[in-house]
């Protein structure tokens, strides 16, 4: 088992904030817009250093998306930052029309995604945004796994030509990828080699998948662990090659089963290589208030549930 070290829990939204500042220093065309959540989404440092390139839109997300589209026409690289519930759900038509259909170079920084937003409850815990965004032609969907990767993915998003939906979260989670690892959009990263089961995870569930692989190894089950940091465009080769080797798969994500990464993999398997698949994701119900770790457990998203799903997948081979 490849060993990964948690260098200390950190929130992925702060990774975004550091990435935005870094790419802002490197590229003067980077601009940013916030909808009264500049602090929550960690855009303060950018706004302070580059006040002329930061635009406060107020609590008016729809306008913010389209203003960003307009800015991008002039060669600007706009990042819009708000909660994922508003960035994907509330403004779906704006993203569809002004960003995806119009093919504008807008980067949507979607923070506080998923159930681990926690105590605010289901109103703010969007669990369908990956599905909404991946259905849009031309939209890239990126879900980095920790603080460092969110920082590096932010820099990669700025350099990517075209719209990007960058999904990250509120709570502090293990930080284990390299500080200066170059992040490639469209690439899935294999973190562990195994032969019995493939575990595909995105976001902070990648860490849970690594914990699960360690646990499974004790039972004599070895797992390929792959960080599907880009949901779209999907790295078909890396994923299919692994499943062809192991013969079964578990997908793990902080999202509804409907429309999520797991369903995308299910579609891939159905058309290319039928194999047993077990979903670690949220069934057809909304979230609720609670601490992130309580909710991860209650909604079946932690390492323990990945282990159980892997056992089921292996038994179905």
């Amino acid at each position: 088992m490849t060993k990964y070290t948690n260098t200390g829990n950190k929130d992925t939204r702060s990774g975004f904030g550091e990435g935005l500042l870094a790419i802002g220093r490197e590229c003067k065309d980077v601009v940013a817009l916030a909808a009264d959540l500049k602090g929550s989404v960690k855009m303060d440092a950018f706004a302070k250093e580059f006040p002329e390139r930061f635009f406060q839109a107020g609590i008016a997300e729809a306008n913010m998306i389209n203003v960003a589209a307009g800015l991008s026409l002039n060669g600007k690289i706009p990042f819009v930052g708000t909660f994922a519930a508003f960035a994907a759900g509330r403004v779906y038509d704006q993203v569809r029309m002004a960003v995806a259909y119009s093919e504008t170079n807008v980067k949507i920084a979607a923070s506080h995604a998923g159930i681990t937003l926690g105590e605010d409850g289901a109103t703010h815990q969007i669990l369908e945004d990956i599905g909404l965004m991946r259905m849009l032609p031309g939209m890239s969907v990126v879900v980095p796994c920790d603080f460092n990767q969110t920082k590096n993915a932010t820099i990669a998003a700025a350099k990517w030509n075209g719209p990007v939906y960058l999904r990250f979260g509120r709570p502090s989670v293990p930080n284990f990828t390299g500080e200066n690892e170059v992040f490639e959009i469209g690439k899935a990263y294999r973190l562990n080699d195994g032969k019995d089961v493939t575990i595909l995870a995105c976001g902070h569930l990648v860490w849970e998948a690594l914990l699960a692989a360690e646990e499974l190894e004790k039972e004599g089950i070895t797992a390929d662990v792959i960080n599907v940091a880009t949901i779209k465009p999907l790295d078909y080769d890396t994923i299919l090659n692994s499943i062809k080797k192991t013969g079964c798969v578990v997908t793990a994500e902080e999202h509804f089963i409907f429309g999520g990464m797991g369903e995308m993999i299910a579609g891939l398997l159905a058309s290319h290589f039928p194999a047993p698949l077990e979903f670690v994701a949220i069934a057809d119900k909304f979230g609720q208030s609670g601490t992130p770790s309580e909710l991860m457990k209650a909604y079946g998203l932690d390492a323990e549930h990945i282990v159980a799903a892997a056992r089921r997948a292996v038994s179905r081979k």
Binding site: F55, A62, N63, I65, N66, V67, A68, A69, G70, L71, S72, L73, N74, P78, A98
Partner: peptide, 8 residues
């Protein structure tokens, strides 16, 4: 809104 962004 797009026009406003383009003007900015």
């Amino acid at each position: 809104s797009v026009a406003v962004g383009a003007a900015l």
